[in-house]
Simulated assay, not measured.
Amino acid sequence: MIVATPSSASRVRAWGFVAIVLSLLPVGSAVAQPRGPVVVSPEIADRSVTFRVLAPKADEVTLFSSDLPRELLTGEFAKDDEGVWSLTIENVPGGAYRYLFEIDGVRTVDPRHTETSESNGNLWSLVRVPGAAFMDRADVPHGSVTRVNYRSRVLDRDRRLHVYTPPGYESSSEKYPVFYLLHGAGDSDDAWTSVGRAHDILDNLIAAQKIVPMIVVMPNGHTGPFSWIQPVARDERSGNVGNASFEQEFVEEIRPMIETRYRVIDAPNRRAIAGLSMGGAQTLEILTRQPKDFAHVGVFSSGLIFGDPTVWEAKNQAMLDDAEVRAGIRLLWFGIGKEDFLLRQAKATVELLERHEFEPTYVETDGGHTWSNWQRYLEQFAPQLFRD
């Protein structure tokens, strides 16, 4: 083996460059000293969270969050003599929360914090507050979360999804049940494993022997621009905003790709699908296209929320009245909060299904259209899967 070594001339040039750099540093200093105050944000102590941002020329700083309880967002930032703005929120429940700083009207992520969560239209900073044992990062075996990039023929563009594989998947040859888990309108395929903490919830449930180890697939339910908090342009190619053609992509590409690449048990009673809000409506639509392929179905904070339910009912009359379809669905689970703005639609969807002799399980909880509910619904739904 031949090992190349730098020539003496090269070493001289390298040391000469180092000498020049060192000569530019302050006298008496081996390394450049940081300029300005040290800012730590967020800082968590028990159930209090302190947010800080250096903005010496700003006139106003506020905190924007779609996840923190509204009653906690009443405080104001204070500015110190060094230009650091700070806000402490007390009694924050354990959980995961997205937030942004709004500095003189401009929203931005926390520049001192690296943990983030992706929505379909923007990036959030993410803070995790210990205290929710079911989704805290525990000292248990952990599964893996993989970002899978692929080219969609249906949409003619590059796409991405997330896949959770349980502990031991890589070292075994075992086949596993598969659970397709869909996000809501404000989010992306990143959401269930960032703010949703799905992988931590599943790891903890597996360690407690409360669920069957499973593969969980979290696709991107959006096929065009969408955002609740900022304007978006229509897609130049399709003209669509939102989720057009997702169900087609799921049936024709996503599911076949997953069930070819991963060691999945190819049986309806080992296949589940669920989604929150927009994803719940997409779940019901996928069920109409492949009604005998999923034995376990979950709808979180949703129902028939797109279009006229009577039109949907008439269009899917044959499926709804098919006794074989009804017998094959072993779990049809609805969960929604009493303060959720889609409560009426969820109840109406359950009643429609009952009229056709389906037997949905309906769970009504406290709270609204929030991740704190959806995390709990996943914790309640997953242990009911693949038990027969």
Results as ranks from 00 to 15, higher is better:
170 E>V: 09
118 E>I: 04
118 E>A: 10
170 E>T: 12
129 V>I: 15
172 S>D: 09
131 G>L: 05
148 V>A: 00
169 Y>F: 09
141 P>C: 08
118 E>N: 12
129 V>W: 05
115 E>C: 08
182 L>P: 01
173 S>T: 15
155 L>P: 06
168 G>S: 04
141 P>F: 05
167 P>F: 03
115 E>W: 04
150 Y>K: 07
142 H>T: 06
180 Y>M: 02
171 S>T: 15
129 V>R: 03
117 S>K: 02
167 P>T: 06
177 P>R: 02
121 G>H: 00
124 W>I: 13
138 A>K: 15
178 V>D: 00
175 K>T: 15
180 Y>I: 11
166 P>G: 00
177 P>V: 14
158 D>L: 06
169 Y>E: 08
132 A>G: 02
116 T>F: 11
165 T>D: 03
120 N>C: 12
117 S>N: 04
175 K>M: 11
167 P>Q: 01
128 R>Q: 14
168 G>F: 07
169 Y>D: 07
176 Y>I: 02
154 V>M: 04
168 G>D: 09
167 P>R: 01
181 L>H: 06
143 G>W: 05
146 T>K: 11
154 V>H: 07
145 V>C: 01
148 V>R: 05
179 F>K: 05
133 A>C: 04
185 A>R: 13
146 T>H: 09
120 N>H: 13
140 V>R: 03
124 W>Y: 15
185 A>Y: 02
122 N>M: 15
138 A>H: 09
133 A>K: 10
119 S>W: 13
141 P>K: 03
149 N>I: 08
135 M>I: 13
138 A>G: 10
138 A>W: 02
117 S>E: 01
138 A>S: 14
121 G>K: 02
185 A>T: 12
175 K>H: 14
115 E>V: 15
127 V>E: 04
181 L>T: 06
183 H>K: 01
116 T>L: 12
125 S>C: 09
161 L>C: 03
150 Y>H: 08
140 V>N: 08
141 P>I: 09
153 R>T: 14
165 T>S: 08
114 T>I: 12
177 P>F: 13
158 D>K: 03
184 G>A: 09
127 V>M: 00
159 R>S: 07
117 S>M: 04
178 V>M: 03
136 D>Y: 10
118 E>Y: 08
135 M>L: 15
118 E>P: 07
119 S>K: 10
172 S>G: 09
178 V>G: 02
139 D>R: 13
146 T>D: 04
128 R>F: 10
151 R>N: 06
114 T>L: 13
167 P>I: 07
133 A>Q: 11
122 N>T: 14
129 V>A: 08
151 R>Y: 06
184 G>F: 09
160 R>L: 00
131 G>Q: 07
118 E>L: 12
161 L>F: 05
146 T>M: 08
155 L>E: 01
176 Y>K: 00
165 T>K: 00
171 S>N: 11
153 R>C: 00
126 L>E: 10
146 T>Y: 01
153 R>K: 15
126 L>C: 05
125 S>K: 05
125 S>I: 12
146 T>L: 10
170 E>Q: 14
168 G>H: 04
159 R>I: 05
133 A>N: 09
166 P>D: 06
174 E>G: 04
172 S>A: 15
131 G>C: 01
143 G>V: 00
137 R>A: 13
164 Y>Q: 03
172 S>N: 02
